[in-house]
Simulated assay, not measured.
Amino acid sequence: MYARAVAAIVTALLGVAAFLLPGSDARAGDGQPPLVIAHRGASAYAPENTLAAIDKAARMGFSWVENDVQRTKDGELVVLHDDSLRRTTDVEEVFPNRAPWKVKDFTAAEIARLDAGSWFAPRYAGTRVPTLEQYMRRVERNHEKLLLEIKNPELYPGIERQILKLLGNDGWLDHRHLAGRLVVQSFSADSLKIVHDLKPAVRTAYLGAPTVAHLPEYAQFTDGINPSLGSVSTGYVSTVHAFTGPHGKTLSVFAWTVDDAGAARRAARYGVDGVITNKPDVVQAALQSP
């Protein structure tokens, strides 16, 4: 593995590495601004991780959206960030005696009863928590691309295989989707290893900032390193770019969560390839301004 890493470093130092985000648009390394990914959809403008949020991102002209996937008590995959339903639904009112309202303790039918929009704004009252199947079909309809996060995989044994099966059934594991429309990410390296072992063609990204000493190991099973903006620097980004991932391309770097002009410009100076943001319009404007 180290021979490949050394070869990648030499290539990077010579300045001829093909800085292309796996399966996506031109990257910052090509002199282009970072790619903008709508975090949980356009979540500053519509309730996060809902169909309304990805519809809003599409209307705003952003093709890449990010989401979070968890599993219900009866085995349905749903799109939610927290492991509790409390923050983004009215679960306390509907099921007052079910504290702490963990996703894994509710059936899909029970979650489908919840209002996932009123907390955000009155006009979103009645918005529902989407299943992953519903979500994928809306992403497809909107011609969007997806950065899919496997959330809390330690709570849901086998969720990786289940997600891949659903993606396959919905046509998302064909060459067209894998080449440019899907990346799977997680804070769990073990979860990404499972995805890579089960379906090596799927692009993956690790959420976090592994030490430089561990990057050769990560480059065996992931195509990108997605750290918080506060945990990276120009030097770290350059070091990540010196490694080649399992699909033969330079490891990419997506920084999160970048929500204002100053942070967007800082991310661009660091040389990141993408930014994950709740306010894609604000960030896009900052990145495109002189």
Rank of each mutant, 00 (worst) to 15 (best):
N226H: 13
Q70C: 12
V6R: 14
V232K: 00
A44I: 00
G262H: 15
R27L: 09
G158F: 05
H81F: 14
A112F: 01
D68Q: 01
A263T: 09
Q162S: 12
H241S: 08
T88Q: 10
E149N: 10
L207T: 11
V272S: 05
L215K: 05
F106S: 00
G158M: 02
G235R: 02
G271T: 05
L114R: 00
T250D: 13
H196Q: 12
S228L: 11
W172C: 04
E217L: 03
G171D: 01
V202F: 09
M60I: 06
V69A: 09
A18Q: 11
A112Y: 02
P153K: 04
G262V: 14
G224K: 11
V275L: 06
L178N: 00
V6M: 15
E217G: 15
Q134C: 02
V283T: 08
N169V: 03
N49G: 04
T131P: 14
R137D: 14
L77H: 05
A268R: 11
S63D: 10
M60D: 12
A46H: 02
H247Y: 07
D259F: 03
Q70T: 11
L146A: 00
T277H: 11
K151N: 13
Y45W: 14
E48K: 01
F19D: 14
G171M: 03
L132P: 07
D115W: 00
K73P: 07
V232S: 12
A5H: 03
A46Q: 01
M136A: 03
A261E: 11
D260H: 08
V237P: 02
R87F: 03
V183S: 01
I194E: 15
L215S: 13
M136Q: 06
A264I: 00
A264V: 02
G75H: 07
V232E: 03
L114C: 02
V195G: 09
A28Y: 10
G158A: 07
L182E: 10
D170F: 03
I225M: 01
V253E: 04
A52M: 05
V16T: 13
R203F: 08
G224H: 09
L167R: 01
L146Y: 12
R71I: 07
E76D: 12
S43V: 04
S233H: 05
K73G: 06
P210W: 00
R181I: 06
A28S: 13
G230K: 15
T127I: 08
V78C: 04
A213F: 08
F120K: 01
V69W: 07
D30S: 15
D90R: 03
P33C: 06
G224T: 04
A179G: 05
N142H: 02
H143F: 06
A121Y: 06
Y135F: 11
Q70P: 12
Y206H: 12
T89M: 07
D55G: 09
Q185L: 11
A286M: 10
G158Q: 04
R87E: 06
P47C: 00
D273K: 03
L229Q: 07
L114P: 04
A46L: 01
D174C: 06
P216G: 07
H247T: 09
H175I: 15
T239N: 05
P130N: 02
H175E: 14
Q70N: 13
Y45A: 09
S252E: 14
V202H: 05
S118I: 07
A267K: 01
N169M: 09
G171W: 03
L51T: 00
A219N: 02
T257A: 04
H175K: 10
A201K: 08
A261W: 01
G61C: 07
R269W: 09
